[in-house]
Design a protein around this nucleic acid. Sequence first.
DNA 1: TTGACGATGACCT
DNA 2: GGTCATCGTCAAA
Length: 196
Amino acid sequence: MHPSFFQQPTLELARSLIGKLLIKETEEGTAAGIIVETEAYIGPGDRAAHSFGNRRTARTEVMFGEPGHAYTYVMHTHCLVNVVSGPEDSPEAVLIRAVEPQEGLDLMYSRRGSDKKLYDLTNGPGKLTKALGIMKEDYGRPLNEPPLYIAEGREPDEVVAGPRIGIDNSGEARDYPWRFWEKGNPFVSRMRKRRD
DNA sequence: TTGACGATGACCT
DNA sequence: GGTCATCGTCAAA
């Protein structure tokens, strides 16, 4: 995508990313998937964001830079990937939560396990990074050129919004409808129990 | 230097 | 429904 694509407001970008293609090239080969689920994290006023209150650390540093770069983050035994959004000094990002396998299926199976069901390859933020070969070393990489980039995919079906997942300890931010997904797509991650 | 803590996933009952 | 693996990050000591 042209760099200007990433300059739209974070919530619009999160919605616009649905249907786009996320591609990772490695020595093993290329793997790519259509983005079907995202979540927006708008630092300054979002308790669920790592950059809440403009918190600036080595980890959140990339979010303070230009949009369109990768923010990778290690969670337990997994790596998650975000698209940095918002202008410079606005620490915002969009988490890629799920993709639909598009290219490099053999690679995905070898990385995730050949016994896996197709839908289980990439239907979660930690799963898709492993399937595509995205690692913490991708931190800060520009997303408009190889080896990690986003390109036109297909026109998504109906895109709907709802509360984000896995942030139950984030106060009022827990209920913000900042999660977007393609309605009915079988590769969207499963709903988790929420405290209500 | 240390310890508490996850934007998760796999596996078990 | 629940447990736990396993490690980088960050703030406090």
